[in-house]
Nucleic acid binder design. Structure first.
Lengths: 219, 219
DNA sequence: GCGCATAGTCGACACACTGTCGAGTTTCTC
DNA sequence: GAGAAACTCGACAGTGTGTCGACTATGCGC
């Protein structure tokens, strides 16, 4: 695969050199992939199509990328930042701050709306494609870490009730988001309900005693 | 594909006829599939292996099944009943009946423990394989329908607070279960936490007023 | 201008897996 | 034991993948 790392071009002092023919081709492949992903799932996209879209032969495709999944990985790289953005205020905050959570989820929903196929395709390919699995794991861990820390903080401050270990609860919330957005036709329509549900999961005041009494009952 | 429907054999009055050679072969293929799925994901299993496991040639495989996915569908059929079993008392019950919910989730977790690869493979193949998609949709809908009805019932009886539309909430819970079990290494270790979380999602006593006050605050 | 390295391009090939066909063999049934 | 149905297989065609070696284009030092 062609080096994706942008090697510092010698920069001949004077004129700025435009992108090389190869850079253009690479971009064309990426654009084609994005465009195709908007229309059909990753599994149905073939290297032939990618090559055709970039107006090169199939074998030339391999000059730029190792495989179809390598293209996905490249596409994914640009997405990692986006996915984390706007989550800061919520994750670094304290207590049931619904507006912050809502903003965080809205941003996430917008990304799912625009790039759902890409993400879904990536998730489906993850088992069996280590780079994608790593990408997913890294993203998930980053979110879970911060959310778990937030939960621990809230509990220590008496703002949130006890319950599942912070990490486990954070994982459940992360899973819920992914599954819900992946299944939704209109991710953005889900935001408000997701806010409610996540707040319940985190802050539900479900008295131990009452719960204990209820558990005692037979159905 | 060989007729899977058990045609009533003419039953020659006298002796009971044992399974035909073909029945045995079919079972051998199914068994091989189950066995391979315990070791690696569906995508890595090839028809050659399935055929070899059943000690037939690859082309003979096609006498029994249309494709690898057809085998999965057959395997899935046996699973549908299991997946619904033990959920009755919870789904038909009323109020935060934790023990019933726990039993329902325990049974589900056991299935995921034993057949996780099969289910995960099926879910991954669902987009792009209508029969599997239908299977999944049917199962999901059955669960969502009953759970949504339960939610509506509880709300009408004043046992559960308002919140997302019953159907949406039910979908979120279904999504959460699937995602959580799919991601877990040990599904059964998750049961207790899932009970807590689902009860919170359904019955969280998160006072409107208190929530309202909190929403008012800036982070 | 020439020579040469590097970038870019492609057709042809080898391979893996899928699914079909027709011809063969076995097994039931009358 | 004849004929139908069940079963089996090798050979083939199709599709998608990835590699190779030869060929052309481009930039650069001289």
């Amino acid at each position: 695969m062609r080096d994706t790392v942008m090697v510092m071009t010698p920069a001949p002092a004077g004129r700025r050199r435009g992108p090389s023919k190869g850079d253009l081709r690479e971009k064309a492949i990426l654009d084609t992939a994005r465009e195709l992903l908007a229309r059909k799932p990753l599994a149905e996209i073939t290297i032939d199509e990618l090559a055709a879209g970039a107006e090169i032969s199939r074998s030339t495709f391999y000059f730029y990328f190792d495989s179809k999944l390598a293209v996905v990985v490249a596409l994914l790289h640009g997405l990692a930042d986006e996915l984390g953005r706007d989550a800061g205020p919520w994750l670094d905050g304290t207590g049931p701050d619904a507006p912050a959570l809502r903003r965080s989820l809205s941003a996430l929903a917008a990304i799912w709306r625009d790039q759902g196929r890409l993400i879904a395709g990536a998730l489906a390919a993850a088992p069996g494609c280590p780079p994608i699995a790593r990408w997913r794991a890294g993203l998930r861990e980053a979110h879970v870490d911060r959310l778990a820390a937030r939960i621990a903080r809230d509990r220590a401050a008496g703002l949130a009730p006890d319950g599942p270990a912070p990490r486990v609860l954070a994982e459940l919330i992360d899973d819920l988001r992914t599954a819900a957005f992946a299944a939704a036709t209109d991710p953005e329509a889900l935001v408000d309900d997701l806010v409610t549900v996540e707040l319940r999961m985190l802050y539900a005041d479900f008295p131990e005693t009452a719960l204990g009494r209820m558990i005692g009952q037979a159905p």
